Amino acid sequence: MMSFNYYRANHPSKAEFTAEVNKHHKKVFIYDKGHSKGHRSVTNDAHSVVHRIIRKHPHCAEYQFFYRDSQGRIDEMVIKDGQFDSFKAHGLEFFPK
C-alpha cells in the first residue's frame, strides 16, 4: 500500500514536498515541490523534512528514505534513531514502484 502526502510549507524557510510511503517495501520517496517557488530545498531542510514525515507516520522511522533533487538525481537520506543523519549517493535514475 502506498500513501501520498503533500507537505505544504507555511514559511519559505521550510521545504515544500510530496512524500510517497511504500509500506510493503518500507521505503519513503520524497519529491521537492517548493524549491522553484522560493522555499528551501529538501536537501537544505533535510532534518525538518524527515521530522515532519516521521511525526505524521511514526512507523517510517525504520524505512529507507530516498529523495529526488532538482537536477533529477536520486540519493538516499540515511536515517539513524528516527532522525536524518546524512545523504548517501544511490545512483538511481528513477524511483522504483
Rank of each mutant, 00 (worst) to 15 (best):
K23E: 13
F66P: 00
I30E: 02
N44Q: 12
K27G: 09
E16K: 03
D81T: 07
F65I: 00
H59A: 14
F65T: 01
D45F: 03
R40H: 06
A15R: 01
Y31G: 07
K14Q: 09
Q83W: 09
Y67R: 01
H39L: 12
H51E: 15
S86T: 09
K14H: 12
D75R: 14
R73S: 09
H24M: 14
I74V: 06
K23H: 13
Q64V: 04
F65Y: 04
E76K: 09
H39M: 11
T18Q: 13
G72V: 06
F87G: 04
H25W: 11
R40M: 06
D32N: 07
V49I: 08
S70W: 09
R68C: 06
K88G: 05
M77T: 02
S13V: 08
Y31V: 11
V28A: 03
V28K: 00
D81C: 06
S48E: 14
H39A: 10
G72Q: 05
S70Q: 13
G72K: 04
T43D: 10
K27Y: 08
A61E: 09
N44T: 09
V28M: 03
S86N: 14
H51G: 08
Y31L: 10
R73H: 13
Y63N: 04
H51C: 10
H24S: 15
N10T: 11
R55F: 13
G82T: 07
M77R: 01
C60F: 03
P58E: 08
V49D: 01
F65D: 00
D85P: 11
F17K: 01
H24D: 15
V21N: 00
E16T: 03
H51P: 00
K26R: 13
K26Y: 08
D81P: 00
M77K: 03
K23A: 11
E20Q: 13
Q71S: 11
I30M: 04
I30A: 02
I54S: 02
K56G: 15
A15C: 06
Y63W: 05
V78G: 04
E16L: 03
P58W: 06
Y63I: 04
F17H: 04
T18C: 15
K14A: 10
F29I: 08
F87I: 05
F65A: 01
H47Y: 14
